[in-house]
């Protein structure tokens, strides 16, 4: 058991007013300090390579998506947010997605799709803002998911670096 002794107050403290003045001087000094609030929409959050935002599909330099619609991300997705329909293509890779949808309302931004992808076709972008008027508008189709590789490069480099031990850059991308 701890017995707390009440602190003996000095005369100035018991008079209360000197302490009030001391308190006032503290708040007055704070008055001139810079606010630490971030004005969000005008001053966006600092975005880092570690930022794990919404998943996006990589568009290679030749204008095609890197995705071969293998369905691994679809299988890895714990929230069942991804839907893929594949189709044939004359390109060397033979398959490409006809339909690639991510339901952003279901996506939990876990990054499993990024880890599962054997073709470096899907990466977590730094895009975090998600707002619309209908649910249907938040199911992103292929066109809305496409991003040029350059836009995702920071994240791609980061993923290569941290996954270096077991993952090598894909031979076809």
């Amino acid at each position: 058991m701890v017995i707390l002794q009440r602190k003996e107050l000095s005369l100035a403290e018991r008079l209360y007013l000197p302490e009030v003045l001391r308190g006032l001087s503290i708040t007055f000094r704070k008055f001139f300090e810079k606010p630490i609030t971030r004005q969000y929409p005008e001053e966006p959050l600092p975005k880092d390579e570690v930022t794990r935002g919404q998943p996006r599909l990589v568009v290679k330099e030749d204008g095609n998506v890197a995705c071969v619609s293998c369905g691994l991300c679809e299988a890895a997705c714990p929230a069942y947010a991804i839907t893929i329909d594949g189709q044939e293509t004359d390109r060397f890779i033979e398959r490409e997605p006809e339909r690639f949808e991510i339901d952003m309302l279901r996506c939990i931004l876990c990054g499993f799709c990024e880890e599962a992808c054997p073709k470096d076709a899907i990466f977590m972008s730094d895009e975090l803002e998600l707002a619309d008027y209908t649910r249907a508008a938040l199911i992103y189709d292929l066109e809305r998911l496409k991003r040029p590789k350059a836009a995702l490069q920071k994240r791609i480099d980061y993923v290569y670096r941290i996954n270096d031990r077991w993952r090598k850059p894909s031979s076809t991308s």
Binding site: T27, K30, F32, P35
Partner: peptide, 13 residues
């Protein structure tokens, strides 16, 4: 405004 400035905030702006 004053309360905001004393608490490192911006206040209504």
């Amino acid at each position: 405004k004053v309360s905001a400035w004393m608490q490192y905030r911006h206040g209504p702006n």
